[in-house]
Nucleic acid binder design. Structure first.
Length: 693
DNA sequence: GATCCTCGAGTTCC
DNA sequence: CTCGAGGATC
């Protein structure tokens, strides 16, 4: 008797795959990320390989998936549109395995020269066949199931970069040239489209929706029945392959085909490269992986094609895929995992932040186990529940985010998460009541500095690099000091001695001395840093500096009235009120006095004594990426010392953007606005020599 | 009153 | 890095 388990599993997998393929291809509304689909697909393949008797005719592994949607006319492809074998091994080994397979199939010996490949990007859009007859675009069709697609001529005609007529005599003389390529949406176009959609929805428009990602947006737009509507949604196109050809001498290489396309006026991506052997493939894969986030469009990996057409023909096809090409995926940027619990953190200002505790999952190059859920609104919007399977993404940035939840994997007992109910209305750290201001999203702990969490955060903020810069006082140590009841208020930090530190675990004499030295060193500071370190609400680094500059002396700040505070740069009623209230409280006044008594000093009225050259006066800089010699903080300090301003975001008022390695969206914005971009060397050249230490 | 610009605050992993 | 919101500007 055969084992029943694999039979049942295979059937279940087939059903699931069918379902998701339908959601993805026909309805443009996937519920699981591609990586999860691939995993299910591979599991089914593995079962079928182990138990060939379980393979069925209709198994998703046996056909090119996709279906024809009602409303668009079916188009039978003259030459089938096949898919490319996908290598899911995202390491360099994937490329090496492909090269080894090709060499073996061509019966090449070990000493035969390296093969030439055309390496291309794998665009994340949808494949389209453009049929040109005598140079005229007569029809555009989707891939469909590979044999039959849908007629989308009306929407594809709206894509400005798709020529209605091919250029050059050869193209016009050819009876038929079918050009295959990818229709996709650039990321900026996608964002703009979704922005417009959001506004429409807010405005009460019915039947409008936002799109999950550029690929779905592109698919949705191409398969729009209404061409007028499609015209307002910018799509792009790259050509990369041929379908039926009658009366044209096809170039002998893949890269030659690209060149021929360009001559005909077809858009061809210029990241393609001819590379030699497996080393070349690996280098290309790595170079593209490094640039992936900076590309203006999404890709899901790269494609390697044997460059020489004669060799391609020699290799031929394996059932439904060419043997001479492979798609090499990049590491997944989206994964699913189990949301095991939702914790609540207390921030410095008392803000309660729900944090998802995830079953650790490898995504975008690191293992992620936590992700912020921001606030209750966000949880409700995404309908995330404990024990849900959620989709986790690490997009262009570093910070993981929860994209959504896989509804059908939700266990029956999953309850909606209610922050207030979960906490029973009390702060999880100090038990104080939690409150929410009218119209605000965030719940806050009302315990103030009585709350150990807020106290810890306040101390950490005080000791921070851009505040008092106390060396040797980190996360763990603050935790211990507060838990052990050694430090309750900021001034108590300065009363620490080797003796009471010795009581702590893992606190050798050496590190105790380090901390005491660090505290001693921090006493010499500036008024701006000191004001910032106090952690007054709405007073960040910049405002603190402005206050210091405006008032010059601490005592003048202490007695300033709200109208007087309003005279400070960038201080409005809310900030003025916050500052005034802070210093009006006797308890805060006392802390300030005690800190002064501890020996914290700065040059009162500083700024006048500063005679260093100010060549950058009036210039605004924005920093992005990582620099070679300077840290971001150093760069900021040096620019400010030279009279310049450093801002966080690029705008029309920005004079220079300084870009280091792996610069992100800010660089893009700078080019867009035509702002001068400097590299680190150019910045250093503008700065006066550094102060001797 | 609307729009643009900037600042503050919160956040992850190694 | 991104979001939200405070402040400035038209």
């Amino acid at each position: 008797m055969p084992d029943k388990a694999p039979i049942r599993r295979a059937a279940a997998l087939r059903e699931q795959l069918q379902h998701h393929a339908n959601l993805y291809y026909t309805l443009d509304a996937p519920q699981i990320p591609d990586a999860e689909y691939d995993r299910l697909f591979q599991e089914l393949q593995a079962i079928e390989a182990a138990h060939p008797e379980l393979q069925t005719q209709d198994s998703p592994t046996q056909r090119v998936i996709g279906a024809v949607l009602d409303g668009l006319a079916p188009v039978r492809h003259q030459v089938p549109m096949l898919s490319i074998h996908t290598e899911t091994d995202t390491t360099p080994t994937g490329a090496e395995k492909f090269d080894a397979r090709v060499r073996k199939a061509l019966a090449l010996g070990v000493d035969a020269p390296a093969l030439a490949y055309n390496a291309e990007l794998k665009f994340d859009g949808l494949a389209i066949n453009l049929r040109y007859e005598r140079g005229e675009l007569v029809q555009a069709a989707t891939r469909g199931d590979g044999e039959t697609g849908e007629d989308v001529t009306h929407t594809v005609r709206m894509i400005s970069t798709v020529p209605k007529r091919l250029r050059g005599a050869v193209a016009v003389q050819a009876a038929v040239i079918e050009v295959r390529g990818e229709v996709f949406m650039r990321r900026d176009d996608f964002e703009a489209l979704n922005e417009r959609q959001r506004k429409l929805i807010e405005g009460g428009a019915k039947g409008e929706k936002t799109f999950v990602n550029p690929r779905n947006a592109a698919a949705g737009v191409v398969r729009q029945l209404d061409a007028g509507k499609a015209a307002k949604r910018p799509l792009s196109f790259f050509a990369y392959a041929l379908g039926e050809v009658v009366g044209w001498a096809v170039p002998g290489t893949q890269h030659g085909l690209g060149a021929a396309f360009r001559k005909m006026g077809l858009p061809v991506n210029d990241d393609s490269q001819v590379v030699q052997g497996p080393e070349g493939l690996v280098r290309f894969h790595e170079a593209i992986a490094a640039r992936r986030d900076a590309l203006p469009f999404d890709i899901d990996g790269v494609v390697y094609k044997l460059d020489d057409r004669a060799q391609q023909e020699q290799l031929g096809f394996k059932s439904r895929e060419p043997r001479w090409a492979v798609a090499h995926k990049s590491p997944a940027q989206e994964q699913t995992t189990l949301l095991q619990d939702i914790d609540v953190q207390v921030g410095r200002t008392g803000k309660l932040t729900p944090v998802a505790k995830l079953l650790p999952v490898f995504v975008g190059g690191t293992t992620v186990s936590n992700a912020t859920l921001h606030n209750q609104d966000e949880i409700d919007r995404k309908d995330v529940r404990i024990n849900d399977t959620v989709i986790v993404r690490r997009a262009g940035d570093v910070i993981p985010e929860i994209v959504g939840t896989v509804i059908e994997k939700r266990p029956a007992d999953a309850q909606p998460f209610d922050l207030y109910k979960k906490l029973g209305g009390k702060c999880p750290v100090c038990g104080s009541e939690i409150t929410r201001e009218e119209g605000e999203v965030d719940w806050r702990c009302s315990g103030g500095l009585f709350c150990a969490a807020q106290r810890k955060q306040a101390i950490l903020h005080f000791a921070g690099r851009r505040a008092m810069d106390v060396e040797g006082l980190g996360d763990k140590l603050v935790d211990q000091l507060v838990e052990a009841g050694i430090v309750h208020t900021l001034p108590e930090l300065y009363q620490l001695g080797v003796a009471n530190l010795a009581a702590l675990e893992r606190m050798a004499e050496k590190s105790a001395q380090n901390l005491i030295d660090g505290l001693e060193k921090s006493k010499q500071t500036t008024l701006g840093r000191f004001l910032y370190a106090l952690g007054i609400r709405h007073v960040g680094e910049t405002t603190a500096k402005d206050l210091a500059k405006h008032f010059g002396q601490l005592d003048r700040v202490l007695i300033a009235t709200e109208p007087q505070l309003l005279e400070v740069n960038d201080v409005g009623p809310i900030v003025a009120h916050s500052i005034h209230t802070f210093f009006a409280q006797p308890h805060n006044r006392e802390i300030v006095e005690q800190l002064r008594a501890c020996g914290i000093t700065w040059k009162e009225d500083d700024g006048t004594a500063d005679t260093s050259p100010k060549p950058l006066l009036g210039q605004t800089f924005v920093l992005t990426g990582t620099f070679q010699t300077l840290s971001r903080d150093e760069a900021k300090d040096r620019i400010e010392a030279a009279g310049g301003k450093v801002s966080g975001s690029v705008s029309k008022k920005t004079h220079f953007v300084v870009a280091g390695a792996e610069a992100g969206s800010k660089l893009e914005k700078a080019t867009e606005l035509g702002i001068t971009v400097l590299d680190e060397a150019a910045l250093l050249a503008m700065l006066p020599a550094a102060d001797p230490p």
